[in-house]
């Protein structure tokens, strides 16, 4: 590190140049999109029923997914954090898988489990539950791809806590539930918040698994990203506006959590 810290070294100059290229590459499309935005007709696009429907559905789906992720993901993160590092490895790999899995593949594996022809298909059919082409399909897809972001963030947060504090609380008379609610969770708020923000933002942007597994049905499974895809076929400007809305929301989530919790979400 000390060698790189010199501002005049040729290596620093090289790194600056290379890093500059990457930053420019990441920034350019955003700038281009802003420039190409049909400012005059934004209002018309934003008030279109199809757009509003998709936006509403996106919020609904990713919020329900977040509730599921938090409810089931917190216990999982807690168990992972309390496992010996060696044993936790396998389970953690499994949990991480949806993060690196191509979303289309996620959709295919979800179909093979919950589709009409899938493993649980007959059972779901018997109970008259249909998941594909239904909002619940979009929720499942979003939950599947976004859960790892929450679980891994919260696990890391839990591991960073001082386990000695639990012991201290116990000697003061606190039992598990009080330790969890008064000692663990209050210290974990930054991790919980950034995990939830990341997870929610990932669910909001979910496309591949949703279109493969849940389908692209307006009002039921057509979330905003799916709507963007459909609009793009016929109306470039409309797709621009919808994309920009998604971009703005993602940016807002990131910035607000960075500011509030002082860590890059």
């Amino acid at each position: 590190m000390t060698m790189l810290s010199s501002t005049r070294s040729p290596l620093t100059t090289l790194f600056r140049a290379l890093a500059g290229i990457l930053v420019l590459f990441l920034l350019l499309p955003l700038i281009a999109a802003t420039l190409r935005l049909p400012w005059g007709s934004i209002g018309r696009y934003l008030s279109a029923p199809a757009f509003r429907e998709a936006l509403f559905l996106s919020f609904l789906v990713s919020t329900i997914a977040l509730v599921l992720v938090v409810l089931l993901g917190f216990p999982l993160a807690w168990i992972l954090a309390h496992m010996k590092e060696g044993r936790a490895g396998l389970l953690r790999t499994l949990v991480t898988l949806p993060m690196v899995l191509p979303p289309v593949v996620a959709g295919v594996v979800l179909l093979s489990a919950f589709g009409r022809e899938g493993l649980l298909g007959p059972l779901l059919g018997l109970l008259q539950i249909q998941i594909p082409f239904h909002m619940s399909g979009a929720v499942l897809a979003a939950t599947f791809v976004s859960a790892p972001f929450f679980v891994l963030t919260v696990e890391a947060g839990l591991r960073a806590l001082d386990p000695g504090l639990d012991g201290a609380a116990a000697t003061l008379g606190a039992r598990d539930f009080r330790i969890l609610t008064r000692i663990t969770i209050p210290q974990l708020i930054p991790s919980l918040a950034s995990g939830a923000a990341l997870s929610w933002a990932r669910a909001l942007g979910e496309f591949g698994a949703t279109i493969t597994f849940a389908g692209n049905v307006r009002g039921r499974t057509q979330t905003l990203p799916l709507a963007v895809y459909e609009i793009l076929q016929t109306d470039y400007d409309g797709a621009m506006v919808a994309s920009f809305v998604l971009l703005a929301i993602s940016l807002l989530v990131l910035v607000s959590f960075r500011r509030k919790w002082g860590r890059g979400a």
Partner: peptide, 21 residues
């Protein structure tokens, strides 16, 4: 008997004060 069931008070070497309280 778990710690809450024992009438003890511990001054830990590293204190272990709750940092968020």
């Amino acid at each position: 008997v778990a710690p809450p069931g024992r009438s003890i008070g511990v001054l830990f070497q590293e204190l272990r004060l709750f940092p968020h309280l």
